[in-house]
Protein backbone atom coordinates (compact mmCIF):
# COMPACT_ATOMS: atom_id res chain seq x y z
CA UNK A 1 0.00 0.00 0.00
CA UNK A 2 3.01 2.23 0.27
CA UNK A 3 3.76 1.92 -3.43
CA UNK A 4 2.15 4.18 -5.98
CA UNK A 5 -0.99 2.36 -7.06
CA UNK A 6 -0.70 0.76 -10.47
CA UNK A 7 -2.78 1.82 -13.41
CA UNK A 8 -5.04 -1.22 -13.29
CA UNK A 9 -5.81 -0.65 -9.63
CA UNK A 10 -6.70 2.96 -10.40
CA UNK A 11 -9.09 2.04 -13.19
CA UNK A 12 -10.71 -0.63 -11.04
CA UNK A 13 -11.12 1.80 -8.13
CA UNK A 14 -12.66 4.39 -10.45
CA UNK A 15 -15.13 1.89 -11.85
CA UNK A 16 -16.19 0.54 -8.46
CA UNK A 17 -16.53 4.04 -6.95
CA UNK A 18 -18.60 5.16 -9.94
CA UNK A 19 -20.92 2.18 -9.66
CA UNK A 20 -21.52 2.74 -5.95
CA UNK A 21 -22.03 6.46 -6.47
CA UNK A 22 -24.46 5.75 -9.33
CA UNK A 23 -26.59 3.60 -7.03
CA UNK A 24 -26.67 6.42 -4.49
CA UNK A 25 -27.36 9.05 -7.12
CA UNK A 26 -30.19 7.12 -8.76
CA UNK A 27 -33.02 7.93 -6.29
CA UNK A 28 -32.18 11.64 -6.55
CA UNK A 29 -32.19 11.52 -10.33
CA UNK A 30 -35.43 9.55 -10.40
CA UNK A 31 -37.06 12.13 -8.11
CA UNK A 32 -36.03 14.96 -10.44
CA UNK A 33 -37.23 13.05 -13.50
CA UNK A 34 -40.59 12.25 -11.91
CA UNK A 35 -41.07 15.94 -11.05
CA UNK A 36 -41.01 16.74 -14.79
CA UNK A 37 -43.53 14.11 -15.82
CA UNK A 38 -47.19 14.63 -16.54
CA UNK A 39 -46.98 16.10 -20.03
CA UNK A 40 -46.62 19.69 -18.89
CA UNK A 41 -42.90 19.65 -18.28
CA UNK A 42 -40.70 20.89 -15.45
CA UNK A 43 -41.38 24.62 -15.68
CA UNK A 44 -45.13 24.21 -15.51
CA UNK A 45 -45.08 21.68 -12.65
CA UNK A 46 -42.78 23.78 -10.50
CA UNK A 47 -44.65 26.97 -11.34
CA UNK A 48 -48.00 25.48 -10.37
CA UNK A 49 -46.58 24.17 -7.10
CA UNK A 50 -45.05 27.53 -6.26
CA UNK A 51 -48.03 29.69 -7.15
CA UNK A 52 -51.10 27.55 -6.64
CA UNK A 53 -50.16 25.39 -3.67
CA UNK A 54 -49.55 26.42 -0.07
CA UNK A 55 -45.88 25.38 -0.37
CA UNK A 56 -44.53 28.86 0.28
CA UNK A 57 -46.66 29.23 3.37
CA UNK A 58 -45.36 25.87 4.63
CA UNK A 59 -41.83 27.09 3.92
CA UNK A 60 -42.48 30.29 5.85
CA UNK A 61 -43.70 28.28 8.86
CA UNK A 62 -40.60 26.11 8.65
CA UNK A 63 -38.45 29.21 8.48
CA UNK A 64 -40.03 30.55 11.68
CA UNK A 65 -39.25 27.21 13.38
CA UNK A 66 -35.67 27.30 12.08
CA UNK A 67 -35.00 30.89 13.16
CA UNK A 68 -36.56 30.34 16.58
CA UNK A 69 -34.75 27.06 17.23
CA UNK A 70 -31.39 28.25 15.94
CA UNK A 71 -31.46 31.50 17.95
CA UNK A 72 -32.52 29.88 21.21
CA UNK A 73 -30.08 27.01 20.79
CA UNK A 74 -27.25 29.36 19.85
CA UNK A 75 -27.70 31.70 22.83
CA UNK A 76 -28.22 28.87 25.35
CA UNK A 77 -25.25 26.95 23.94
CA UNK A 78 -22.73 29.79 23.92
CA UNK A 79 -23.60 30.90 27.46
CA UNK A 80 -23.57 27.37 28.87
CA UNK A 81 -20.41 26.29 27.06
CA UNK A 82 -18.60 29.41 28.30
CA UNK A 83 -19.68 28.63 31.85
CA UNK A 84 -18.65 24.97 31.60
CA UNK A 85 -15.32 25.74 29.93
CA UNK A 86 -14.19 28.94 31.66
CA UNK A 87 -16.41 30.35 34.42
CA UNK A 88 -16.95 26.98 36.09
CA UNK A 89 -19.50 27.95 38.73
CA UNK A 90 -20.40 25.68 41.67
CA UNK A 91 -21.62 22.27 40.62
CA UNK A 92 -20.66 22.80 36.99
CA UNK A 93 -19.33 19.28 36.60
CA UNK A 94 -22.53 17.64 37.80
CA UNK A 95 -24.63 19.97 35.70
CA UNK A 96 -22.46 19.28 32.66
CA UNK A 97 -22.99 15.54 32.94
CA UNK A 98 -26.71 16.09 33.45
CA UNK A 99 -26.86 18.00 30.18
CA UNK A 100 -24.77 15.36 28.41
CA UNK A 101 -26.96 12.54 29.68
CA UNK A 102 -29.79 13.96 27.59
CA UNK A 103 -27.66 13.48 24.46
CA UNK A 104 -29.01 10.14 23.37
CA UNK A 105 -32.60 10.73 24.33
CA UNK A 106 -35.08 9.85 21.57
CA UNK A 107 -37.51 12.80 21.39
CA UNK A 108 -40.41 10.47 20.77
CA UNK A 109 -40.08 9.07 24.28
CA UNK A 110 -41.33 12.46 25.48
CA UNK A 111 -44.56 12.17 23.52
CA UNK A 112 -46.83 11.81 26.57
CA UNK A 113 -45.47 14.76 28.63
CA UNK A 114 -45.15 17.04 25.59
CA UNK A 115 -48.69 16.29 24.59
CA UNK A 116 -49.94 16.88 28.12
CA UNK A 117 -48.02 20.15 28.39
CA UNK A 118 -49.23 21.46 25.04
CA UNK A 119 -52.76 20.56 25.97
CA UNK A 120 -52.60 22.09 29.44
CA UNK A 121 -51.36 25.43 28.14
CA UNK A 122 -53.30 25.19 24.90
CA UNK A 123 -50.21 25.53 22.71
CA UNK A 124 -51.58 23.68 19.70
CA UNK A 125 -50.63 25.54 16.52
CA UNK A 126 -48.20 27.62 18.54
CA UNK A 127 -44.64 27.79 17.21
CA UNK A 128 -43.17 27.41 20.67
CA UNK A 129 -44.71 23.96 21.05
CA UNK A 130 -42.22 22.85 18.39
CA UNK A 131 -39.34 25.28 18.94
CA UNK A 132 -38.78 24.68 22.66
CA UNK A 133 -38.63 20.84 22.54
CA UNK A 134 -36.41 21.06 19.44
CA UNK A 135 -34.03 23.45 21.18
CA UNK A 136 -34.03 21.31 24.33
CA UNK A 137 -33.06 18.19 22.40
CA UNK A 138 -30.43 20.06 20.33
CA UNK A 139 -28.68 21.77 23.24
CA UNK A 140 -26.86 18.74 24.73
CA UNK A 141 -25.00 18.04 21.45
CA UNK A 142 -24.17 21.68 20.70
CA UNK A 143 -23.01 22.32 24.29
CA UNK A 144 -20.70 19.30 24.09
CA UNK A 145 -19.13 20.57 20.84
CA UNK A 146 -18.80 24.18 21.95
CA UNK A 147 -17.52 23.45 25.44
CA UNK A 148 -14.71 21.30 24.02
CA UNK A 149 -13.83 24.07 21.61
CA UNK A 150 -13.88 26.84 24.22
CA UNK A 151 -11.59 24.85 26.53
CA UNK A 152 -8.93 25.60 23.94
CA UNK A 153 -9.23 29.38 24.38
CA UNK A 154 -6.15 30.44 26.42
CA UNK A 155 -6.91 31.70 29.93
CA UNK A 156 -4.26 34.42 29.51
CA UNK A 157 -6.53 36.19 27.04
CA UNK A 158 -9.33 36.31 29.58
CA UNK A 159 -6.98 37.48 32.33
CA UNK A 160 -5.69 40.25 30.13
CA UNK A 161 -9.27 41.36 29.60
CA UNK A 162 -9.82 41.43 33.33
CA UNK A 163 -6.79 43.63 33.89
CA UNK A 164 -8.39 46.07 31.52
CA UNK A 165 -11.49 45.93 33.68
CA UNK A 166 -13.77 43.85 31.46
CA UNK A 167 -16.53 41.81 33.07
CA UNK A 168 -16.79 38.09 32.36
CA UNK A 169 -19.71 38.77 30.04
CA UNK A 170 -17.73 41.32 28.06
CA UNK A 171 -14.90 38.81 27.81
CA UNK A 172 -17.36 36.32 26.33
CA UNK A 173 -18.67 38.86 23.82
CA UNK A 174 -15.38 40.39 22.73
CA UNK A 175 -12.82 37.61 23.14
CA UNK A 176 -14.39 34.15 23.30
CA UNK A 177 -17.18 34.52 20.76
CA UNK A 178 -15.00 35.94 17.96
CA UNK A 179 -12.57 33.05 18.52
CA UNK A 180 -15.45 30.58 18.56
CA UNK A 181 -16.73 31.52 15.10
CA UNK A 182 -15.87 28.16 13.48
CA UNK A 183 -17.74 26.18 16.12
CA UNK A 184 -20.65 28.65 16.01
CA UNK A 185 -21.00 27.90 12.32
CA UNK A 186 -21.15 24.19 13.10
CA UNK A 187 -23.78 24.74 15.78
CA UNK A 188 -25.90 26.90 13.50
CA UNK A 189 -25.62 24.64 10.47
CA UNK A 190 -26.56 21.45 12.33
CA UNK A 191 -29.42 23.04 14.27
CA UNK A 192 -30.74 24.59 11.07
CA UNK A 193 -30.71 21.22 9.35
CA UNK A 194 -32.40 19.44 12.24
CA UNK A 195 -35.18 21.97 12.58
CA UNK A 196 -35.92 22.30 8.84
CA UNK A 197 -36.15 18.51 8.57
CA UNK A 198 -38.12 17.94 11.79
CA UNK A 199 -41.22 15.88 11.18
CA UNK A 200 -42.49 14.50 14.45
CA UNK A 201 -43.16 17.61 16.57
CA UNK A 202 -45.07 19.60 13.91
CA UNK A 203 -47.01 16.44 13.10
CA UNK A 204 -48.17 16.29 16.71
CA UNK A 205 -48.79 19.93 17.48
CA UNK A 206 -49.63 21.74 14.23
CA UNK A 207 -53.13 20.67 13.41
CA UNK A 208 -54.32 23.73 11.56
CA UNK A 209 -53.71 23.35 7.78
CA UNK A 210 -52.30 26.89 7.67
CA UNK A 211 -49.63 25.91 10.22
CA UNK A 212 -48.14 23.00 8.26
CA UNK A 213 -44.38 22.87 7.68
CA UNK A 214 -42.31 21.58 4.76
CA UNK A 215 -41.98 18.04 6.11
CA UNK A 216 -45.77 17.76 5.98
CA UNK A 217 -45.65 18.26 2.21
CA UNK A 218 -45.68 14.53 1.38
CA UNK A 219 -48.70 13.84 3.59
CA UNK A 220 -50.59 17.01 2.78
CA UNK A 221 -49.89 17.17 -0.96
CA UNK A 222 -50.59 13.51 -1.52
CA UNK A 223 -54.06 14.26 -0.23
CA UNK A 224 -54.53 17.29 -2.48
CA UNK A 225 -52.70 16.01 -5.57
CA UNK A 226 -53.53 12.34 -5.15
CA UNK A 227 -53.38 11.72 -8.89
CA UNK A 228 -50.49 14.06 -9.55
CA UNK A 229 -47.25 12.54 -8.29
CA UNK A 230 -45.09 14.85 -10.46
CA UNK A 231 -46.33 17.92 -8.54
CA UNK A 232 -45.72 16.22 -5.19
CA UNK A 233 -42.18 15.50 -6.35
CA UNK A 234 -41.65 19.03 -7.61
CA UNK A 235 -42.58 20.17 -4.11
CA UNK A 236 -40.15 17.64 -2.57
CA UNK A 237 -37.31 18.93 -4.74
CA UNK A 238 -38.12 22.52 -3.85
CA UNK A 239 -38.13 21.88 -0.10
CA UNK A 240 -34.85 19.96 -0.35
CA UNK A 241 -33.08 22.75 -2.20
CA UNK A 242 -32.33 24.91 0.86
CA UNK A 243 -30.59 22.11 2.78
CA UNK A 244 -28.75 20.71 -0.22
CA UNK A 245 -27.47 24.16 -1.18
CA UNK A 246 -26.52 24.88 2.43
CA UNK A 247 -24.63 21.60 2.55
CA UNK A 248 -22.81 22.14 -0.75
CA UNK A 249 -21.73 25.64 0.22
CA UNK A 250 -20.81 24.81 3.82
CA UNK A 251 -19.53 21.22 3.49
CA UNK A 252 -16.63 21.89 5.83
CA UNK A 253 -18.90 22.80 8.73
CA UNK A 254 -21.17 19.81 8.28
CA UNK A 255 -18.21 17.48 8.37
CA UNK A 256 -16.53 19.23 11.25
CA UNK A 257 -19.66 18.94 13.37
CA UNK A 258 -19.94 15.30 12.53
CA UNK A 259 -16.34 14.35 13.17
CA UNK A 260 -15.87 16.64 16.18
CA UNK A 261 -18.97 15.20 17.79
CA UNK A 262 -18.06 11.63 17.01
CA UNK A 263 -14.30 11.25 16.98
CA UNK A 264 -13.14 13.08 20.05
Amino acid sequence: MNRRPRRRARVLAQVVATLVAAVYLFPLVSAVLVSGEGGEGYAKNYWVVLTESPLLRFARNSLVIVIGTVSITYVATMLAAYAFAKVRPVGNKTLYYMVLAALTLPAISLIVPLFAMVQRFNLFNNYFAVILPLAATSVPFTVLLTRNFMEGVPNELLEAAEIEGASSFRALLHIVLPLAKPISAVVIVWTLLGSWNEFFLPLLFFQDPSMQVVTQVPTYFTGVYSQDTPKVFAALILISMPVVITYLSMQRYFERGLTAGALK
Binding site: K86, V87, P89, A102, V139, S168, A171
Partner: peptide
Protein backbone atom coordinates in the same frame (compact mmCIF):
# COMPACT_ATOMS: atom_id res chain seq x y z
CA UNK B 1 -6.82 27.45 37.36
CA UNK B 2 -9.77 29.32 35.97
CA UNK B 3 -8.92 32.80 34.77
CA UNK B 4 -8.79 35.40 37.53
CA UNK B 5 -11.50 37.51 35.87
CA UNK B 6 -14.06 34.87 36.59
CA UNK B 7 -12.78 33.53 39.90
CA UNK B 8 -15.42 35.21 42.01
CA UNK B 9 -18.23 34.00 39.82
CA UNK B 10 -18.76 30.72 41.63
CA UNK B 11 -22.41 31.46 42.30
CA UNK B 12 -23.67 34.02 39.90
CA UNK B 13 -21.76 32.24 37.13
CA UNK B 14 -24.70 29.85 37.29
CA UNK B 15 -26.69 32.53 35.48
CA UNK B 16 -24.82 31.58 32.30
CA UNK B 17 -26.20 28.08 32.64
CA UNK B 18 -29.76 29.18 33.22
CA UNK B 19 -31.13 29.10 29.63
CA UNK B 20 -29.60 25.71 28.81
CA UNK B 21 -30.69 24.24 32.14
CA UNK B 22 -34.21 25.60 31.79
CA UNK B 23 -34.49 23.82 28.45
CA UNK B 24 -32.85 20.56 29.44
Amino acid sequence: PRPRSVRNLRLHGLLYLLPALLLV
